[in-house]
Simulated scan of single mutants.
Amino acid sequence: MRPLFAALLFVFPLIQPLPAGADEQQLPGSIEVVAELPINPGNLAVTADGRVFATVHQFRRADAQLIEITGPASYRPWPDTAWNGAFGSGPEVLNSALGIRVDRQGRLWVLDNGLGDPPLMPHQTPKLLAFALAGGKPVFRYDFPPETGPAGSFLNDLAVDDARGFVYIADVGGSQAPALVVLDLNQRRSRRFTASPALQAEDVDLVVEGRVIGPRGDDGKVKPARIALNPITLSTDGETLFFGAMNGETWYQVPARLLREGAKDAVIAAAITKAGPKPVSDGAATDTAGHHYFTDLGNNAITVLGPDGRLDALVQDDRLLWPDALSFGEPGWLYIAVNQLHRAPFLNGGVEGAVPPFRIMRVYFGQD
């Protein structure tokens, strides 16, 4: 990985926000804080005019599950307090929202994997919801049947094809095999695809702040994490689906048409090819020019895979302590949810080691 903007970062490590309308003065790799929060953002979605929405990661539950950022240190439950009610308190509650996307039809898609903490918080049925950005009214709902959202699955991230009416979901797997879940919005029918080793974690450690990350076993020793299918994106024309394991250094691609048309598992598996390298990453985003941006967990960085196959650093910043998720916002800007997830009890020997605030940041990458 070549440090494309290393010299710029050395000279300008803390570039401050410029006035509105001055983006043309920004240098690629310029990074700034959008909001500092007392609660833990999971994934995020940003509109083209800069509205910022975030889920609250279920590893650190708070007084809301879905929020809109309202200021440099403020937020509000979205769309209202009722949808942000207590876990399991009713059918119209977000129990464990994580994956989130804004589409081109003015809708916010929210993936609720339903995972709880039994026996006090028994798992709920996973569901996908869409809310109108104007007013917050729910406009779509799908409750996953056991065949495609089985108990023990972990529906984590999603890519939305609003033109054709398909949603592609990355299921990390949990106690199930990792899977691509394909939802036909028009037919209200879903499918679970598991038949490829490309969905599995690779044998590569995640090292953050000098230590190997993973849960602690009964023997008191850390078991290095091996987290499977996680980041997932879609090309602008909707024809190519990209994905990779969190614990993995390979970025894969598959023709989305095969998934839309219900091709046989063997045909889909044979069509999966390598798109290029990637870092160990929790989130990704693909722009209209075919660049793939990744959260580089081990290096507190955002890296970019260009159409030429090169993997380069866009920005490295010590504040990027577990950059979890990415979302494009205003032209030229890429937003980042930073949540110190490696310091959460599940990945930190049962001890909470985070030092708030948690952050929403953004980096300028230039025009497509």
Rank of each mutant, 00 (worst) to 15 (best):
R359H: 09
G353D: 14
S327N: 06
F346S: 13
D318E: 09
A325G: 04
V338A: 04
P331H: 15
A354V: 11
F358T: 06
R359A: 04
V338D: 00
G329T: 06
D312A: 13
L305T: 03
P307K: 09
A325P: 00
F328P: 00
V351M: 11
R310D: 14
H342L: 14
A313Q: 15
W333F: 12
P356N: 06
L347Y: 10
V355I: 15
L341V: 10
L347W: 12
R359G: 01
W322E: 02
P331E: 15
R319A: 11
A344P: 05
A344G: 08
Y335W: 13
N348L: 14
A325Y: 01
V351H: 15
G309V: 09
D317Q: 11
Q316I: 15
G349W: 08
T303E: 07
F328D: 03
L311W: 03
I360A: 03
L341F: 12
Q316P: 09
P356V: 09
I336A: 06
W322S: 03
P357V: 04
N348C: 13
W322V: 04
G349N: 11
F346W: 13
V315S: 02
T303Y: 03
A301P: 01
P331K: 13
R362H: 05
D317T: 12
G350N: 13
F328C: 06
F328Y: 06
M361S: 06
W333Q: 07
P307V: 08
P323A: 14
D308L: 14
E330D: 09
A325S: 06
A354P: 10
L311M: 07
L305I: 04
E352G: 12
A337G: 04
A325K: 03
L334A: 08
G332W: 01
R359S: 06
I302W: 03
P307G: 15
L326C: 04
E330S: 10
R310C: 14
L305F: 05
F328G: 03
V338T: 06
Q316T: 11
T303M: 14
F358Y: 12
L311H: 03
Q316A: 13
L334D: 02
D312L: 11
R362C: 05
W322C: 02
G350T: 10
P357L: 03
G309R: 08
W322I: 05
W333Y: 15
E352C: 10
P357K: 03
D312H: 12
A325R: 01
V338L: 07
E330H: 11
D312M: 10
V338K: 00
N348R: 14
P356Y: 09
G306I: 09
I336Y: 01
D318S: 11
L334Y: 00
A313Y: 13
D317I: 06
R359L: 05
G349E: 12
F358H: 05
M361K: 03
A337C: 03
F346R: 13
L334M: 11
E330V: 12
T303I: 09
L341I: 12
A344K: 15
P356G: 11
P345F: 10
D308T: 12
V355H: 12
D324K: 02
G329K: 02
D317A: 09
D312R: 11
